[in-house]
Structure formats: C-alpha cells, structure tokens
Simulated scan of single mutants.
Amino acid sequence: MVIPVHDKNPVRRVPVVTYALIAVCAVVFLAGPISGFLPLYGSGRGLLCEQNAYLARWGVIPDELWHGPLPAALIPAPAGCPAPHDYGKVPVLSVLTALFVHGSWLHLLGNMLFLYVFGDNIENRMGRVRYLLFYVVAGYLATYGYALVHAHSAQSLVGASGAISGALGSYLYLYPRARVTSLFPFLFFLPLRLPAWAVLSFWFVLQWLAAQASPSGPAVAYAAHIVGFAFGFLCTWVYFRRKPGRAGPEPARPEPSAPGAGPFFDGPSKRPRE
C-alpha cells in the first residue's frame, strides 16, 4: 500500500473541476446513509438496510450491465433486510452515479486524497472540459472492465477510484519525474519523496498482484484500477503525441523551498500560480 500526500508540481490556475469533483463526492457521501451523519436513516439494523438499498440503487451491479436490471429478490441483502425496491434503474447510468458514491469514510478520504494530489496537474494540462470528459470516460471504461471480469456478480460497485486511476496513468506519462511525497505503511508511515514513476509504478504493481490474488471478486475493485490506469496512460500518450504543438511529458516545474523546510516537505506546491 502507498499513500501519496504531496507532489512538488505546482499548477498555473485553480483546478476548478478537481475541487468540484471532490466537493460533490463529499456532499453526496454526507447526505447519504453510508456516512451515518443524518438521523433520518435510522440506526442499527434499519440503517444497515438503508445502506444496502442505497448502494443497490446508485451503485453498479456488474450483472446488470450485461443482462439488464436484476429482480429485487436476486440482489444480496443483509439478513433481516427486505429486498431493495425496484427503482426503474438504468444500468448504464448507474456507472455515472456510482462515481460519486463511496462505501465508507476511509473509501471516500482515500480516493479524494489521490484525486487532490494528482488530478489538478492533469486538469491544468488538458484543460477543464477535456479533463472532465477524460475523467468520466476513464470511470466508465474502468467499471466495464471490472464488470467484464466479474460478469455475474450481483454485488454493488461504488467509488471514483476507476476514474481517478485514469488520472494516475495520465500523470505517469506527463510527469514521470515529478517528486511525490508518499507514506508507506510497511515502513511505519515513513514519508519518502520519490519520482512519480516509482510511486505510481509501485502502486500499479500492487493493484495487479492484488487482482491476481482475488480472482473471485475482491472487496476492492482492483481490476477497475488496472483498466482505468492503462486507459489514462494510453489515452494521454496518444493525445499528446498526435496533437500538433503539444509535447509529451514535461518535467515538473521546480518551486523554491521555503527557508528551513524539512527534507521531505518542501513547502506548499499546490498553490495556483496567478
């Protein structure tokens, strides 16, 4: 496991789309039953049933992408909970809604941290509209890639990690030498500042190994991460190689360190340059 917390790669303008995506995901999570923030969803067994129905309604069920909406009786539910209602769900649209739904606080915070660290630079390089389109397409391809591997799964799939993985792949192509400060739990959370190619390659290998170790369908959608990452890298490579006047990777722009900055954190690099 690797946890990026900071990259030394300043942006030229405010990453409006990245911040908006983070805000929407946070609001959706707080307003839903998963957060446990609102008392209207009840507590105990009632809350658990509400959470299951919520994920079934707004999340992706891989089987539904290929075979259409499942009968409510076939959707898994905790013991003692009624089957989720038939909401007239459109499976292809559930891929989009699932990008903004998360299954726990840790799930939300982890995804938003990755999006914050890597998404702003991709937005600045691609432009806001292209970046948003890229994000959504990466999310769709990642989800369908997972559904292809687990075609008969009736478990709900939620989260933005497939789309964010696309941003990671794009970052690897565009900024392989940018310095990324990351925490490694197996090193007792020691912060290390490494080039992006090392951090992201290590992350990708971990996803690949985890996917091989859980072929029956893991709790974490590793296959979606792999597909999203591969799409992000290849899409960015094709776009920036074929677009006239656009070079491929550019080196990270250095930013002066603040006086007295430590060896790992060299002062804020996420402040937009006006």
Rank of each mutant, 00 (worst) to 15 (best):
G80M: 11
C81S: 11
C81G: 11
P82Y: 07
P82K: 08
P82T: 06
P84V: 08
H85A: 15
H85T: 15
H85L: 14
D86E: 13
D86C: 10
Y87E: 14
G88N: 10
G88W: 10
K89H: 14
V90W: 13
V90K: 12
P91G: 05
L93M: 10
L93I: 08
S94F: 08
S94D: 07
S94H: 07
V95R: 00
L96Q: 05
T97N: 05
T97Y: 04
A98L: 03
A98S: 06
F100N: 01
V101H: 00
V101K: 00
H102M: 11
H102S: 11
G103W: 02
G103P: 03
G103I: 01
G103C: 05
S104A: 08
S104G: 09
W105K: 10
L106G: 15
L106I: 14
L106E: 14
L106Y: 15
H107E: 14
H107Y: 12
H107D: 14
H107V: 06
L108K: 02
L108Q: 02
L109T: 14
L109I: 15
L109F: 15
G110D: 10
N111K: 10
N111I: 09
M112G: 06
M112E: 10
F114T: 07
L115E: 00
L115N: 00
Y116W: 15
Y116D: 13
V117E: 01
F118R: 00
F118P: 00
F118D: 00
F118W: 01
G119C: 02
D120G: 15
D120P: 14
D120L: 15
D120T: 15
D120K: 14
N121C: 11
N121R: 12
N121P: 09
E123P: 00
E123N: 03
N124R: 05
N124H: 06
R125M: 06
M126S: 07
G127L: 05
G127T: 04
R128V: 11
R128Q: 12
V129E: 12
V129P: 07
V129S: 11
R130M: 13
R130A: 13
Y131K: 03
L132I: 05
L132V: 05
L133E: 11
F134H: 01
F134D: 01
Y135T: 05
Y135K: 02
V137A: 04
V137P: 01
V137N: 04
G139R: 00
G139L: 03
Y140E: 06
Y140G: 06
L141T: 04
L141G: 00
A142V: 04
A142N: 03
A142F: 03
T143H: 06
T143E: 07
T143R: 05
Y144I: 12
Y144T: 09
G145C: 07
G145V: 07
G145R: 03
A147S: 06
L148V: 11
